[in-house]
């Protein structure tokens, strides 16, 4: 975020700032990436103080971005349309097991854990309530739209998770991986190490989840 803000400030784009004594750039990300998760593509929205050609924005901003970060596309939306953050309903993550020693054994264990979790009617996650000491559990089972093992017996185990996300609640991919590990602990004493990547974001249209894509 800080990186993007600084890149924008270096560009000569007509940026819009928030009102007040501490003006801030009007830049929002659709769904901030959890710490420790990588992503192939990210979506965000930026307000400008005057209308410019999307191609011009791409060239001005791209010149200020460090290697490894690429501006893929820019689309103009009407100021009245609801924000990306409000539209996002779910996110799909892919977790790969790091340092898997007994791959086939891990696959079997994880397969079992996945079925157990999917079969459960209720999965409670403790959540601190608004008053400090009050802790309420919430059932996150409805937040799991999809959970499956996505790899062959010999390959490094990979888990695909389609999880509810957005402003009205969600669940972290790491919490789910914790549950998986708790179901079927690794034979070693150490917890499994996962590397997690976010593959795509989803929004709800006519009651169905559809992937968020350019121009949608």
């Amino acid at each position: 975020m800080r990186l993007l803000q600084r890149a924008l400030r270096r560009s000569t784009l007509p940026l819009a700032y928030s009102q007040g004594y501490n003006p801030r750039l009007r830049l929002n990300l659709a769904l901030p990436l959890p710490l420790g998760v990588t992503a192939n593509r990210e979506y965000g929205e930026l307000y400008l103080s005057e209308k410019i050609d999307p191609a011009q924005l791409i060239s001005s901003l791209s010149a200020q971005l460090p290697a490894g970060l690429e501006l893929l596309g820019v689309f103009e939306v009407s100021a009245e349309s609801s924000s990306l953050a409000a539209l996002v309903a779910a996110a799909c993550y892919r977790a790969k097991l790091v340092d898997a020693k007994e791959k086939s054994l891990a696959v079997v264990q994880i397969e079992r854990a996945v079925s157990k979790l999917m079969a459960a009617e209720e999965l409670l996650m403790p959540r601190s309530g608004k008053k400090k000491k009050q802790i309420s559990d919430i059932n996150i089972r409805p937040y799991i739209f999809e959970l499956r093992l996505d790899s062959g017996l010999r390959a490094v185990p990979e888990v695909v998770m389609l999880l509810k996300a957005g402003s009205d609640g969600g669940v972290s991919p790491f919490y789910l991986l914790q549950l998986l590990d708790a179901c079927e602990p690794d034979c070693g004493s150490e917890a499994r190490q996962w590397s997690v990547e976010r593959e795509s974001l989803y929004l709800i249209s006519n009651g169905a989840l559809i992937p968020l894509t350019e121009g949608a």
Binding site: R6, R9, R10
Partner: peptide, 8 residues
């Protein structure tokens, strides 16, 4: 400095 760093 501001143009080349983007500091606020």
């Amino acid at each position: 400095l501001i143009a080349l760093t983007g500091y606020d």
